[in-house]
Simulated scan of single mutants.
Amino acid sequence: MNNDYELIALDMDDTLLRSDKTISDETIESFKKVRDAGKYVVICTGRPVAEIAPYDEQFKEMQYYICESGALVYDHFAKKPAARHTIDTSAMEAIIDAISHDDVMVQVMVNGASIVEGAKIPNMAHYQMGVYVSLYSTVAKKVDDIIPVIRDNAGSIEKINVYHTSREASIRTSERLAAKNLPIERIYAETASLELSPKGIHKGVGIADLASSLNIPIEKTIAVGDADNDIPMLKTAGLSLAVANANGHAKAAADLIIPDNNHDGCLYAINKYLLG
């Protein structure tokens, strides 16, 4: 088996993480094998650093996290950002207007932190995000009103997630933003989430920038994902893999389909394609 690949980037939710948000012991053990082989396994997620922190011990063999869909590359060993991109300040008022038309829960990411309206956390199932109640209760910074947070942190916000009650509602918000021709990226995630990132920034940029900084040719990278926000990295990496539970768009963008997230698909990818 060809084991010339040097780096594998794994999406977290519904890819590396099982449905109960855990990781198998065998997969965790494989991270050390990768490091011992002089190669890299990295997380490439839409989550901010704060939401990866509960897994820091399990990820102790990983030096880098590509966070916030490529907006922040974090050096886990040095405990500091290696690269960072922020949303243009000119977009903020238009974003505020666009999200004011529907019942939404908004998450703002600043310097790797997660900021949300605390009163909405117990009701996250209403926004199709119920599985994250415990995580947000633990790691998110809680505020009473998210709008002043957006205004006060203009120029420092890496990413904004807008959680809706339905996919149709997220499409309406996306269409309102598209009509404003803003310098942002819009991408769907989860069941009814809309992710807003700096213009030109996505997971594909994150994996390309990290590979370049490590002097790894992009053709020697592997990406594993399951959803629309993974498609840019699936199209960028030298080998793209979709877990069997991935949506149709991600599967169409992938070179190969591997076992699902509940049957150690990422472990399969590491052993077969990275370690060989």
Score class of each variant (00 low, 15 high):
A113L: 13
D25I: 07
E57N: 08
L10K: 00
D11Q: 08
Y188Q: 13
H101K: 11
Y132L: 15
C44M: 06
A192M: 05
Y5E: 03
A50I: 03
I115P: 00
I218T: 11
E117H: 03
E190S: 14
T27Q: 00
Y5A: 06
A211Q: 02
I160E: 06
L16E: 03
V106L: 08
Q107L: 14
I95W: 09
A246H: 02
D264A: 12
A237Q: 01
G238Y: 13
L210Y: 07
S30K: 01
L256H: 15
V73C: 05
T86Y: 09
L16I: 07
T138M: 06
L182P: 03
A269R: 00
G155F: 12
S114Y: 02
Y74I: 07
N181R: 09
A82N: 02
Y65C: 01
K220P: 00
G118R: 05
E93I: 02
D14L: 13
Y64M: 05
D144H: 12
V108C: 05
L241D: 02
D88M: 07
L17V: 11
D88R: 01
M62S: 03
L17M: 13
P198L: 13
I207F: 06
D145W: 10
D97Q: 14
S213P: 00
Y268C: 01
I23R: 03
N123K: 08
E158R: 01
A242V: 11
Y163I: 02
E168G: 10
G276Q: 10
A269T: 12
T27F: 04
H85K: 12
I160F: 10
M105V: 13
L210Q: 04
G70C: 06
H126C: 09
A189Y: 03
V143F: 11
P48D: 06
V73Q: 02
A192Y: 05
I146L: 07
R186A: 09
D255Y: 10
V49P: 00
T86A: 04
R186M: 15
V106W: 06
P198H: 10
A113V: 05
C266T: 15
I218K: 01
V108D: 00
T45M: 04
Y136F: 15
V110R: 01
R47Q: 11
R172F: 09
S69A: 08
A227T: 11
A125D: 14
V149H: 03
D88Y: 08
L182N: 07
V131Q: 12
D4T: 14
F59A: 01
V34M: 10
I222Y: 02
L241Q: 01
K60A: 13
K220T: 00
D264R: 02
D25T: 10
E195Q: 11
I23E: 03
L234A: 10
I160L: 08
A250F: 09
V34A: 03
V110W: 09
D228F: 07
K141F: 09
H76S: 14
D260C: 05
H164A: 13
